[in-house]
């Protein structure tokens, strides 16, 4: 079966190719196969598969990747609990 895709055109993932050193770490850590290495540079090939987990940005030594809301995956329960607890972290709920 095909991979399920969530809402389109929402993710905050950004790749600055001029900083990319082609180490391919982003490809190795991405659980959704978002990147591909073409001519020694990383390319975002399936942006809408991104779940903003933040693994690529954290492991990009040349800091070519940024993803704003990345900590684990999106979770409504976490957002709701965070709202009521006044917590800043979006992933702080008791469920996971």
């Amino acid at each position: 079966m095909q991979d399920m895709v969530y809402i389109k055109n929402v993710v905050t993932l950004q790749l600055d190719q001029s900083n990319c050193n082609g180490c391919s770490m982003c490809i190795k850590v991405c659980p959704r196969n978002v990147f591909r290495l073409i001519d020694y540079k990383a390319h975002i090939v399936s942006r809408d598969h991104c779940i903003e987990c933040g693994a690529c940005a954290l492991n990009c030594q040349s800091r070519a990747i940024t993803v704003i809301s990345g900590k684990g995956c999106g979770c409504a329960t976490g957002i709701i609990e965070g709202y009521f607890n006044g917590g800043k972290s979006e992933c702080s709920c008791s469920r996971c």
């Binding site: 969530y6 929402v10 959704r32 779940i51 903003e52 995956c73």
Partner: peptide
């Protein structure tokens, strides 16, 4: 395992 925070 398919949702992003921005999407949610």
């Amino acid at each position: 395992t398919i949702t992003s925070l921005s999407g949610v």
